[in-house]
Structures are given as C-alpha cells and as structure tokens.
Design a protein around this nucleic acid. Structure first.
Lengths: 270, 270
DNA sequence: TCAATTTATGTTAATATATCACACGCATCT
DNA sequence: AGATGCGTGTGATATATTAACATAAATTGA
C-alpha cells in the first residue's frame, strides 16, 4: 500500500469525498495519477468512484445485516411517521425500553436528534449504535445470545437481566396485532423478553404500522390489557382503531406524506 | 416518493449496483428519466451516483461511529496480519472472549470466514454485528452501559455478567504494553472487564501491534504473569520480544506485507 | 557500478458520459 | 378553453473517463 493511498483513506475518513482536482493539487501529482490511485482502492472496495472524484466506502459490508437492511425499507415512510409521532409521548428524564424492530430503530434515530437526558434500555445492538452517534442519552443494553436475524440479544441470560430493569415506558413493535386479543410474534426468541418488559414497565406503548393489524402469528406475546397506548399510521383500518378507543386505549395516528404500495411482482421479477 | 424510486431502492438492496442502461431497459423509460430519479435519491443520501450508474448507499451513516471508523484504519495492515496469525491459536469447539478493540474486530472478521462451531463471548456491539453476518458460530454478548467511544458495554452490570462466563481463551488488545510489567489502559470503563476476563479464562492471549510496546497509560490493567501468548507484527522491537521469550511466553510474529508509516504532518495539515 | 527491467508518472487524443436547454404530452385547476 | 405544473424525451454541448504512448524514477541482477 502506497503512502498516498494511506493518506487518501485517512482523508476520506475525515471528510467524505474529494474531487480529483483537489487531490491532484494537494498531493502535487497529475489527476491521472490520482485516478490510478483511486482505481486501485476502488477495486479493493475501500473507496467508491464517483463522477469527478472519490467518496469513502461508508461502512465495510459486515457492518450491517442484509436482511435487516431490506426490512428497514419496507413501509419506511410509515415507520418514520410513527417514530416522529411517538416522540410526543416522551417526557424529559424518563427511562425507556426499545425493542429491536426496525420501527424502534427509526424511533431511536429520532430520539438521538430530539432528546437528551433519557435512559434507554434495549436488547438491540443496532439501537445501541444508532443512539451511540452523538447522543446525549444514556444507553443500556441487555446482553445475551446474539440473534443475527434481528441483531438483538435473546436467551436465558437476557431474560435474567431484563428482569432487573424497570422502565417508565416500553416501546414495542410486533409481528401481528389483533385489537381484541393482543400482539403476536413468530419467533420465540424475542417473545420472552417482550413479555418480561411488558410486566415491568409502568406504561406500554405499541408502535405498529397498518400492515400488522388483524394478523396473528405463531405465539401470543402480550395481552391487550397491558397496552396503554398505540401509535400507528393513517392507513390503519378505522374500525380497529375504534375498537381500541372503546377499550380506553390512547390512539395516535401518524400521517405519512406519501403512501405508495409497491407491486411485489415488479420487484420479484427483477 | 415515486413508485420507480421505491422499486429502485429495493432492487439496490438486493443487488448493489445498476447501470443507467439496465434500469432504462427494465423500467422502459429513457436514461434521462432514470438519471433524474437517481439524482433525487442521491440528494437524499439514499443512493450513490457512480460512473454510468448507481450504487446503493451502503449503511446509513448512523450505522457506524466515525471515531471507530478512523481508528480502524490506523495500522490496518498490521492488525489484519495479527488477526490472521491469531487464527492458528484457535481449536475447534472452543469458547473465546474478544474485547472491543479494532484488532479484535479484524480477528472476529477472520473467525467468521474461517471457523465454525465456536462460542464467542464479547462486550462489543460491533463484534456481534461483524460475526452476525453469515457466521456459523454462537455469539454471546455481555450487556451493560453502552460506551460510544468503543461501541462496547461497560459498567457494573457488565462486570456482574462477565463474572459468570468462563472461557477457554481470551483475546485482548491494549493501549500500552510493557513487557516486564503488563498492559495499560487509559479508560477505566474497559479496565474492570478485562481484569475479570483475565481472571476467568484458561489462557490469555494478547494481540498487540508494534506501536503499543513500551507504552504506559493511566492504569495498569493486566499483570504480565497472566499472559500466556503474545501475537504482534514484525515491526515490534526485537529486544522486547526476547524479554517475553525469556519469561516463557509464546510469541507469534505476523508479517504484514507492507508496513508504511504515514507522516502525521501531511495528514494533519490537510 | 552499470545496464536491464520494472514501476510510476505525465501528456495527448479518442471515447464515453453527464449536463443543459428546449419541446412535448398529460393532468389539474380556474 | 386556457393556464399552470409536472414528468418526460431529444439533441447539442460540456465534461469526464479511458487508452495509448512517452518519459522519468526506482529496482534488480550481474
């Protein structure tokens, strides 16, 4: 590895992108030479060639999990809208629990931007990283066996530990939600932790996008009686929301700017 | 958000990059239209424009921590060489502890590729994610308060939990290493956990690049008597290695292909 | 030490790519 | 109907990329 290569990588880690011209001036070599440097680094995946310059290759590919990444994109706008709405529920100085769902990741991102002085308890590695960047909040993580599908910690030692935490508000997402019964999960891993958290929080808030309503899954997780508040998006079925209100639940409906369903055919055909 | 935009993002999450021509054919619109789509998405940071096409914006920026990222680049080749060498020490079925250092991250990456059936215990969120991707190993994480500088978990509850784990081999890195005394750390956060792990492992291996030798830091962490094996790179001072050998330590020296020091002046001047 | 070889670099011309400006079709609103 | 705004396609122009060649510097082997 050449000296210029090393320096270029370090420069990129400070500032995200440089033009060939800038680099040519700074290193005092021709743009052609810089181009050749960049070609080499790009072929190793260390940088990304852009038009007229070079950009840092953000995170090495192992920094994220592909399945999670794609799940992050499903109903992205609704999840963002729900996360923003949920911000209204948080009071200064509170202790919160967030599960490892992508909805809660969005929520964590919003919390990082708009709040400080909170204590966040989670069992998700990604939430820790999300909140780690420039946050003014304290983040506590429950350990345990790492589940790569959800990037969160599950199993006996998690459960033991989560039994020690008592939070003001728990924010949970779910796989399926039946308004007369409660929430459902399809994997037993997260089930137990969610149940423990539901037991030990003062208030339980459910973050559910419209696609979860009227869906059951393998196991019942949390009984409807434990849920105090529900935050969803404006595509959620009216009648279900009415059932919740009749039960005395607080219902928050977030309006997402642009709800566009994607024909799965088009995508899977590619 | 337009339908084409949504679909393009999902396509990119499956396959990393597309040319304008391909997209033009698939969507049956002109390349100009695709270019305009990509421009919009690029301005939102959702994709990256490349020459003749578009590439997915790997991880959202909050997926990684900037300081960590840059630390990852310091002595990168030496750390990689050390990580590869350390692979030789691992036996099938063992239980290992890895700390949150960048050297151990490299090691974790190598383990993911070259081993299976191991149980890895760590207090680092990044190691979990590193090993989560396609690993055949079990990963267990110690929870606790999240330290954003090292992306690892520290504090009382971590210490309590780490007291429950007994591993075959612990791989630790360090801030400073004096061959006649032991290792040194500059933050108290990781100190206690490293000490506990050192107590409770059958074998302790130190992964240190040459820059750590003869350096002290705020607190003494681990006494030299506890260390059984040292893995370092070929720029480590000979005499120090001899001192280790005289003490009966196992010493492994990794040869990095290309050791080039970078003048800090040049970098910091930028 | 010198010549031979490789490697790194700069210059130019060609090719490919990106951008701009304009015109068209289509929907919406008054 | 006419006006407005939006998305789109076409072609001209500007810019960037690549390839080919020439030169300079470093490396190698006798």
């Amino acid at each position: 590895m050449k000296k210029r290569h090393e320096i270029l990588l370090r420069k990129l880690s400070n500032r995200g992108a440089y033009s060939y011209q800038e680099l040519s001036d700074e290193f005092d070599v021709s743009t052609m030479t810089i181009r050749r440097d960049v070609d080499k680094l790009a072929s190793q995946g260390l940088v990304i060639k852009t038009i007229g310059g070079v950009q840092k290759a953000d995170a090495p590919s192992y920094f994220y999990e592909t399945k999670l990444q794609s799940r992050f994109l499903v109903n992205r706008e609704e999840k963002l809208a729900i996360a923003e709405k949920a911000l209204e529920l948080v009071r200064p100085g509170q202790t919160l629990f967030l599960d490892g769902s992508t909805t809660c990741q969005q929520f964590a991102k919003q919390l990082t931007r708009h709040s400080k002085g909170l204590t966040i308890v989670t069992n998700s590695a990604l939430i820790c990283l999300v909140m780690g960047e420039g946050t003014e909040n304290t983040v506590v993580c429950i350990g345990g066996q790492f589940d790569k599908n959800t990037a969160s910690f599950v199993g006996p030692s998690s459960e033991e530990l989560s039994g020690n935490f008592f939070v003001d508000m728990a924010f949970l997402s779910t796989r399926g939600f039946v308004t007369t019964e409660g929430t459902f999960e399809s994997s037993v891993g997260n089930l137990r932790i969610k149940q423990l958290v539901a037991e030990q929080c003062t208030e339980l808030t459910l973050l559910v996008d419209h696609s979860k309503f009227r869906m059951r899954a393998l196991c019942k997780a949390i009984d409807i009686s434990k849920i105090k508040t529900v935050v969803t998006d404006d595509a959620a079925p009216e009648e279900e929301l009415n059932i919740l209100k009749e039960q005395g639940k607080q219902v928050y409906v977030a309006t997402s700017n642009d709800v566009l369903k994607i024909e799965e055919d088009v995508v899977s055909a590619s």
